[in-house]
Write a protein that binds this DNA or RNA. Structure first.
Lengths: 195, 195
DNA sequence: CCGGTGAGTGCACCTGGTGCCATCAGTGAT
DNA sequence: ATCACTGATGGCACCAGGTGCACTCACCGG
């Protein structure tokens, strides 16, 4: 393990975050990020596949965590309940990082490039969950739809959580799932959800 | 209205499709597309925002059609049923274009760039449907989830239709919606869906 | 015949991204 | 000490996507 200044990846991420926060994603150049981290453009691309990736560093680990939590759920539970449980635990892990989450959210909203990347990360998460559910004795279709529904609920809850500093993430997930079922259910006798 | 060779946009699309089909998306350059259409790179970008967009030309019109169909549905229907009805009609309109749909599908599968673009187009469609549903007296949350569910069902049905030449799209949509409800429902007394 | 309009073009330029090879810090073995 | 090795880094040339700007030129209407 060679050693120059350590933690090149971290330094690049920090530099990128600062610059993006200062001047917005589009107006920052990869060369600038690298130089602020004491490196070069070439080294940036040795660590990140492209400019967008520097903002989605956590995604891979998050996906792995979710799959871990999913494996811990009761194997006989309904697929969607298992997925919701796993995503709820994963979301709770993010609780300490509300401020970065808000900044990231703003950046993504400002750039269609980043929106696309975000969507494909969510799709990747969904696919991974669906595959894991598929290893239980569940039809692939059911697994895929359950995963999509669970991730949709997560996404909504995550957004609410980013917007409302006082909210409890578990409660937001429960509410989102309930709203989702309400929206999808054919039989529709109860009140519409408030808000 | 000035006149050179007419239909520049069409010519560019046709040239792009042919070249992509021959050599794959990644190995074709914008300059090549433009030249095969008798134009220049600069003109290509006067007509399309970027290289990806040439494959998604129909998306805007499709979205508009769906919104039109949605407006024709019974205003008192369940949001998800209205969305499903509109998407079913839209899907039926595509029936004559199965072969192009299959090619497009293969191209998209081969390039993450195109997958990202595809996802954002679907997201745009979803958002448009959700907004339209929101103008009925439906909570925004319900509208959003209903739209997501309906588009998810459409996507699954569309995939099935592209894969199976003998399938009836309406039936595929009904099946997809049924599977979706099965996957999302809490109360789960019936058989799992076959397939 | 004349001025306007708008599609198409030429060109210079920027940035993201890659292939290839050189370099150089530390590591473990001799 | 020294040497071979490894892996992070850097330099460089190069490509493709994409943009700003000024220009041409076919056609239009008067």
């Amino acid at each position: 393990m060679g050693r120059w200044e350590p933690n090149a990846v971290q330094r690049l991420q920090q530099a990128a975050w600062k610059l993006f926060a200062e001047r917005g994603y589009a107006d920052v150049t990869v060369t600038e990020i690298a130089e602020r981290a004491g490196l070069t453009k070439r080294s940036f691309f040795n660590h990140f596949a492209d400019k967008r990736e520097v903002l989605f560093a956590g995604a891979q680990g998050f996906e792995a965590d979710i799959l871990g939590y999913l494996a811990e759920t009761d194997a006989d539970a309904e697929p969607i309940d298992a997925a919701i449980a796993a995503l709820t635990r994963g979301g709770l892990d993010l609780t300490p990082y509300r401020e970065p989450a808000r900044i990231r959210r703003g950046l993504i909203a400002s750039s269609t490039e980043l929106q696309e990347r975000n969507l494909i990360k969510m799709a990747s998460l969904t696919a991974a969950i669906a595959e894991a559910l598929g290893e239980r004795r569940v039809p692939a279709r059911t697994a895929a739809f359950a995963a999509q529904a669970a991730v949709a609920a997560f996404d909504a809850a995550y957004d609410d959580w980013a917007a409302d500093a006082t909210a409890d993430f578990s409660a937001l997930m429960r509410q989102a799932l309930s709203d989702l079922r309400h929206a999808v259910d054919a039989a529709h006798d109860e009140e519409p959800p408030q808000s």
